[in-house]
Amino acid sequence: MKLQDTYFKIDNINVSAENQLQAQFEVTLLEDHPVYQGHFPGEPVSPGVCSLQMVKECAQILAGKEFFIGYVKQYKLLSVMTPQKNPKIIIGIQLTEEEKEEKKIYKIKASATDAANSETKFLDLSGELTPIS
């Protein structure tokens, strides 16, 4: 599955000046994605797993690599997200390269907030991404 440009679009990427593996992605949720026909009929709610995929796709752009999500330590969904109520989202991502069992992995920490109201936090993720060789 690829959600970029059908489920969300990236408006801007701000990469940290100090750390090339840290960035803020300004994205817009696209309300016409077919998933909203089924999640849920007459009551569109952004599926938490689609947010996870969206974070993964942003992380892939940041690292310039394709990943598996090998491990999710914790993925918290903190408020309901809908493209109608909060179309603009800011996703913060920090990746850290590490060796694990002689393979290179990336630890990820990510969060997402409402661009219109930074007090509204949608998710918190900590886990490990494994590059697809």
Binding site: V45, Q74, Y75, L77, V80, G127
Partner: peptide, 16 residues
């Protein structure tokens, strides 16, 4: 009922 995922912990992937 309608259920929402609140939290996922220790998701371990062996293969897709």
């Amino acid at each position: 009922p309608v259920g929402f995922i609140g939290e996922v912990k220790k998701f371990t992937l062996n293969f897709l």
